Simulated scan of single mutants.
Amino acid sequence: MDQGAHVNLMTLSERLAKDTGNPDLTITPGLRIKKAPPAMITTLVTSSIAKWVCFDFFLAPLH
């Protein structure tokens, strides 16, 4: 995620929390540190397994 997208997400989160009056909607640095690594690891493991399972398909030439 590029830096601009991250800033937009944080701004949107703050605005949504402010407009709805629900502070639980904010994305704090602590929440991001807690949630981001498991999501990243899950994505990497899933894509690695998919590539391993379908490796022969990716080796075949296109006709």
Rank of each mutant, 00 (worst) to 15 (best):
R15W: 04
L62S: 10
L16E: 05
L62A: 09
G4Y: 07
I27Q: 02
L31S: 12
K51R: 03
F58G: 01
T46K: 14
T42E: 15
L44I: 11
P37Q: 11
M1V: 11
N22M: 04
P38K: 04
P29K: 01
L9F: 07
A39I: 11
R15P: 00
Q3M: 13
P23D: 13
I49Q: 01
P61T: 08
G30T: 06
M1D: 13
I27A: 12
I41N: 07
K51P: 00
E14L: 05
L9W: 02
C54K: 04
E14H: 08
T43R: 12
R15T: 14
A60G: 09
L62P: 01
A39Y: 06
K18D: 13
F58L: 10
V7Q: 15
P61G: 09
H6L: 14
P38A: 11
K34S: 14
A5Q: 15
P61H: 03
K18S: 13
A39W: 05
D24M: 07
W52H: 02
R32F: 08
G21Q: 07
L25C: 04
L12Y: 07
T42N: 15
T11Q: 12
A60P: 00
F55W: 06
K35E: 10
L31T: 06
D19R: 14
M10P: 00
Q3N: 04
C54S: 12
L25D: 06
T28K: 04
T26W: 00
C54M: 10
P23T: 10
T43W: 05
K18M: 04
L59N: 14
M40Y: 11
A36M: 12
T20W: 01
P61W: 01
I33H: 01
K34T: 06
L12V: 02
V53W: 03
K18F: 09
F55D: 09
T26R: 14
P23H: 02
R32Q: 06
R32W: 03
D2Q: 10
R15V: 05
P23S: 11
V45F: 03
E14N: 13
I27Y: 03
P61R: 07
M10V: 15
I27L: 15
E14T: 07
A36Y: 07
D24P: 00
L59D: 12
P29A: 11
I33G: 05
T28G: 03
V7W: 00
K34C: 03
E14P: 00
L59V: 11
L44E: 08
A50E: 07
L59P: 00
H63C: 04
L25F: 14
F58H: 06
V7K: 15
T42G: 15
